[in-house]
Design a protein around this nucleic acid. Structure first.
Lengths: 209, 209
DNA sequence: GTCTATACTCGGATAGAC
DNA sequence: GTCTATCCGAGTATAGAC
């Protein structure tokens, strides 16, 4: 009897984890509205009813997946930004770190941009409660300080916006850019790999006095 | 009888145009799948059945709206890029021209990025048949020539990608960036206005030898 | 051309047997 | 915990009266 209970618990954990991984995959590609419970079930190798048994509703499942993804993201970015380094080094770390994580998670950027757009108030709330807001504001204020110290030149918000644009856009608009350039998947991956170094040159030239 | 016929024709044209404008508005914000026929009907001040009477299906309506929007876009961009100017002037015109058109049509960028992603083959085809491909390739090859002539430095594809990233991202990711910066709609609009000039400084510094 | 009513399909959610 | 069957709402599309 006891053994049976343990087994059930472990199986439950496994199934829950399997569902989460499947759901993450499907939600990242299709968004909340675009994702189909059937697709998640197929991906997890179970049937739809199981999804509801474990997570009650589609919205609740999404909520879990999404806050997990955000937490993971914040931790990664936070570690880079809050490190104790001169501004150019910090930007370099940010650019490299961001590119690395985006390469292994290429759907994330466009997903976030779209979900933000569709539910601004939800994210507004989240920015206040999570540490994402702190991390970003920290980075922005570091840029501001560096401008005051004449280490770099320009408007802080514009510089911040430009850095994230240069990092994020190639992933968010991947399909569009690939089509525009007429690149294969492989060619474009190479472009993104090489971009890590290109970007540092580009950004440093643009913002040093 | 003749008068009646004319009237019908004109009314048909008006209704058709009204529907198109309403559909454009709704599709741009919600995408093909996200848009509701009821929302388009409401926007146009008619009922759903009329939409089907004029355009048969949702997909067909979308197709019409979409190719119109692309054509308009291509013409605007084409005029800027194919003008006979030195490369830095041409980039300046592109940046300003793009920003202007994006400010008056802020939903367009994210819409295109998403629809591209959801139907890559359709766009692949369109790039070949329309003049969009030619326009883009023209711009890219101008950059390449300028690099050969040592007027600017860097990898042509990376430079092209960087320029469009800097232009498009602030509009495509508007809601996200606004939330990140904690800006009001008004503050963000001001940022975008000022960005036109900031960007030229930024880009020129980054790519001149 | 325009409207109302209705058919049909898809997808999320629940009931109930095992 | 897991499955099958079923419900129910939403949304596209059509029929048919005017």
């Amino acid at each position: 009897m006891f053994v049976y209970f343990i087994t059930m618990t472990e199986e439950k954990k496994d199934t829950e984890q399997t569902i989460k991984e499947a759901a993450k995959k499907i939600f990242l590609v299709n968004g909340l509205k675009g994702a189909r419970m059937q697709a998640i079930a197929d991906e997890a190798g179970i049937n739809r009813a199981m999804l509801h048994y474990y997570f009650r509703t589609k919205d609740k499942l999404f909520e879990v997946i999404f806050s997990d993804a955000m937490t993971e993201m914040n931790q990664r970015m936070g570690a880079i930004i809050t490190s104790d380094l001169p501004i150019l080094k910090k930007i370099e770390h940010f650019v490299h770190g961001y590119s690395e994580s985006a390469i292994s998670n290429p759907e994330f950027d466009l997903f976030i941009i779209n979900e933000f757009r569709q539910n601004p108030t939800y994210f507004d709330e989240m920015m206040k409660t999570s540490n994402a807001g702190t991390v970003i504001k920290g980075f922005a204020s570091e840029i501001e300080k560096a401008i005051d110290k004449k280490e770099i030149v320009g408007n802080p918000n514009q510089i911040f916006l430009s850095i994230i644009a240069l990092c994020i856009f190639p992933f968010a608009a991947k399909t569009m850019v690939r089509t525009m350039l007429g690149h294969s998947e492989k060619q474009y991956t190479k472009l993104l790999e090489e971009r890590k170094d290109f970007l540092m040159q580009f950004i440093i030239k643009a913002i040093t006095p």
